[in-house]
């Protein structure tokens, strides 16, 4: 008898609550643009935050609501931009794919080491106490703050410097913000010619702390047929849009700090050892 009573009571309660739930879900339903769901489904779901919105769904909500043509899912690339454009029936800005690049090649042995760092293994923490692993004031500390910041496993520390695995890099730029020495910049994905040094020092001072440090001799700037190389804010920068791959800079660089990335460098007439 008691069992029957309890069962009946619970069944009644369940029935009542289910009715309440049904009513509530009908009355308080939030209408969401079905487009948001569709856009969200096309997104990579990395939740990397490169777009500046909280996660992929946040980005989907924003583009659908504002139809902002400048809102771009960077990891998605041009392919995704076209699909979102088709869904929303509008032109979406298509950007050339980029990838992070570390502007330091001062590996152990090449860059002069500066004592033993025994503190917390984090470049940011080391930088806070002006500790360093190398004498170069703008060399890669190699303690892996960028590695910790990368959720795609696209960075590794090899021989004391950070290196980006371009295939894995989705260009979220988290590492750019994590590097206390601002050694990482976003560059066009794929082949390019880069000055692999970030020091602001000049001449003999640089030679004291690194074998491949840029000494600001300006030979690359003078010898570039396309005038694509310039001294910007005390570092040499190559304008990739203007670079026509003459490789003259690589041939003349006395420090061998200009490298061709994913490119075959032909035999260079001027070179005294032109291979990069």
């Amino acid at each position: 008898m008691e069992i029957l009573e309890a069962t009946l009571f619970l069944a009644l309660l369940a029935g009542l609550l289910s009715v309440m739930l049904v009513v509530a879900s009908r009355r308080f339903a939030v209408e969401e643009d079905p487009l948001i769901g569709q856009v969200n489904e096309t997104l990579p779901q990395y939740n990397c935050g490169a777009c500046g919105f909280p996660g992929c769904s946040g980005f989907a909500g924003h583009v659908v609501a504002s139809r902002d043509p400048n809102a771009v899912c960077i990891p998605g690339g041009p392919e995704l931009a076209r699909r979102i454009g088709a869904l929303l029936g509008m032109e979406v800005k298509v950007t050339a794919p980029t990838a992070a690049h570390v502007f330091c090649k001062g590996t152990n042995g090449v860059a002069v080491a500066a004592g033993e760092y025994i503190g917390l293994k984090s470049c940011i923490a080391a930088d806070l106490v002006n500790a360093a692993t190398k004498e170069c004031p703008s060399g890669c500390l190699g303690l892996g703050s960028c590695v910790d910041a990368c959720q795609f496993g696209a960075i590794r520390i090899i021989d004391g410097i950070a290196e980006i695995v371009e295939d894995k890099c989705v260009a979220c730029a988290k590492c750019v913000a994590a590097c206390p020495r601002n050694l990482i910049r976003m560059e066009p994905k794929g082949s390019k010619v880069c000055v692999e040094c970030s020091t602001k020092g000049r001449g003999a001072a640089v030679k004291k702390y690194c074998q491949v440090g840029c000494i600001k001799c300006m030979l690359c700037v003078k010898n570039c047929p396309e005038k694509a190389i310039a001294l910007v804010n005390e570092t040499i920068v190559i304008d990739h849009a203007r670079c026509k791959r003459h490789f003259q800079c690589i041939a003349v660089c006395p420090q061998k700090c200009i490298l061709a990335i994913q490119l075959e460098v032909p035999e260079l007439s001027k070179a005294e050892g032109g291979e990069a």
């Binding site: 503190g119 917390l120 984090s122 923490a125 806070l128």
Partner: peptide, 12 residues
């Protein structure tokens, strides 16, 4: 433990 370094990071 590197306690102070982590607290410094927190402040930063």
């Amino acid at each position: 433990r590197h306690l102070v370094a982590r607290i410094r990071l927190t402040k930063l």
